[in-house]
Computed example of a mutant assay.
Amino acid sequence: MTIDSLESAGLTHMDDSDIGAFLSNQRVGVLGLPTENGPYMIPLSFGYDGDRSLYFTFIGGSGSRKQQLTEAAADATVLVYNVESMFHWESVLLQGGIEAVPESEWADLAEVLDGAWRPEVFADAIEQEDVAIYRFRIDEEEGLRHAGLPPGFEPE
C-alpha cells in the first residue's frame, strides 16, 4: 500500500504553507543523527524561525553523546508530529544540515528559542550546565495529514 493509495481514505499531502503553519504551532520533535549502527534518535524541543530553520538547545557539554554526534553530522533528519486520534493526525519529515550557532548570535535567537518547550528540569539545568545552540537548516520537507473519518464511517 502506498501513500497515494490512502488518499481515498482522507490522507493528504501538506504543501509548503501547511508545513510552515504546522511547524509554527509545534514545539517538540525527534532528531535523527547518523551513526554506524543506524540513526540515533533524540527527542527535542525546538523553536522555528518561520522560514527554513529550527533551533534547539543542548545541555551538558561536549561530553554528551548527542552533542558529539551532532557535531560530527553534516546532515540530519527531524520528525515532527501531532496525533489527536487515529483519524486525525499530522506529521512532517525534514531533512537538512545541522550546525552549531556561535554564541555571538544567541541574543538574536532569543525570540525563536523562547517558543521552544522545555521540561522544568532542563530550565533549571540551563543556569548550571554547558549549553550549546544548534541550527537545523531545512533542505527537504514532506508533510502528511489525515483529518476526518475514513469512508464508511460518516456520521448519520
Rank of each mutant, 00 (worst) to 15 (best):
residue 114 D to S: 13
residue 118 R to C: 04
residue 108 D to S: 09
residue 58 F to W: 02
residue 52 R to G: 09
residue 68 Q to H: 12
residue 96 G to E: 07
residue 69 L to T: 12
residue 131 V to G: 04
residue 54 L to E: 05
residue 56 F to Q: 00
residue 108 D to Y: 00
residue 127 E to N: 12
residue 49 D to G: 08
residue 89 W to A: 03
residue 57 T to G: 01
residue 68 Q to F: 09
residue 132 A to M: 10
residue 45 S to N: 12
residue 73 A to Q: 04
residue 95 Q to V: 11
residue 62 S to P: 00
residue 49 D to V: 06
residue 90 E to R: 10
residue 78 V to Q: 11
residue 93 L to E: 02
residue 48 Y to H: 08
residue 49 D to P: 07
residue 93 L to V: 13
residue 46 F to D: 04
residue 84 E to K: 11
residue 122 F to R: 04
residue 85 S to I: 04
residue 51 D to H: 15
residue 96 G to Q: 02
residue 72 A to L: 10
residue 97 G to R: 14
residue 92 V to N: 13
residue 99 E to T: 11
residue 92 V to W: 09
residue 68 Q to D: 08
residue 112 V to D: 02
residue 96 G to R: 02
residue 54 L to Y: 09
residue 93 L to W: 03
residue 100 A to D: 05
residue 86 M to W: 08
residue 102 P to D: 11
residue 53 S to R: 15
residue 68 Q to W: 09
residue 102 P to K: 03
residue 45 S to Q: 04
residue 67 Q to W: 00
residue 86 M to I: 10
residue 124 D to Y: 04
residue 57 T to R: 05
residue 129 E to Q: 15
residue 55 Y to M: 08
residue 117 W to E: 10
residue 120 E to D: 10
residue 100 A to T: 11
residue 113 L to E: 02
residue 73 A to V: 06
residue 112 V to C: 05
residue 90 E to C: 03
residue 123 A to G: 00
residue 102 P to H: 02
residue 88 H to E: 15
residue 127 E to I: 05
residue 102 P to T: 01
residue 110 A to P: 02
residue 81 Y to C: 08
residue 80 V to I: 15
residue 46 F to N: 07
residue 128 Q to G: 00
residue 129 E to D: 14
residue 73 A to L: 11
residue 79 L to Q: 12
residue 121 V to R: 13
residue 106 W to F: 13
residue 115 G to I: 04
residue 74 A to N: 14
residue 129 E to A: 13
residue 74 A to I: 04
residue 130 D to C: 03
residue 55 Y to V: 10
residue 56 F to V: 00
residue 131 V to M: 05
residue 118 R to Y: 07
residue 90 E to L: 00
residue 130 D to R: 14
residue 61 G to V: 09
residue 47 G to A: 09
residue 108 D to Q: 10
residue 119 P to N: 11
residue 90 E to N: 05
residue 81 Y to I: 03
residue 108 D to P: 01
residue 50 G to Y: 14
residue 114 D to I: 04
residue 75 D to G: 12
residue 116 A to D: 14
residue 124 D to C: 01
residue 114 D to C: 06
residue 72 A to G: 07
residue 90 E to M: 05
residue 85 S to H: 08
residue 70 T to V: 13
residue 53 S to Q: 11
residue 116 A to P: 15
residue 45 S to F: 06
residue 52 R to P: 00
residue 130 D to H: 13
residue 123 A to P: 00
residue 126 I to F: 01
residue 131 V to K: 07
residue 103 E to H: 04
residue 74 A to L: 08
residue 81 Y to T: 09
residue 128 Q to V: 01
residue 50 G to C: 10
residue 55 Y to R: 03
residue 51 D to K: 15
residue 117 W to G: 04
residue 78 V to P: 09
residue 116 A to N: 13
residue 112 V to S: 03
residue 126 I to L: 06
residue 127 E to W: 05
residue 130 D to S: 15
residue 89 W to Y: 07
residue 50 G to W: 13
residue 92 V to Q: 12
residue 99 E to Q: 13
residue 62 S to I: 02
residue 72 A to Q: 15
residue 119 P to I: 02
residue 61 G to Q: 01
residue 74 A to D: 15
residue 124 D to G: 05
residue 119 P to M: 06
residue 103 E to R: 12
residue 59 I to Q: 01
residue 58 F to I: 06
residue 67 Q to C: 02
residue 105 E to G: 01
residue 98 I to H: 01
residue 98 I to W: 00
residue 61 G to H: 04
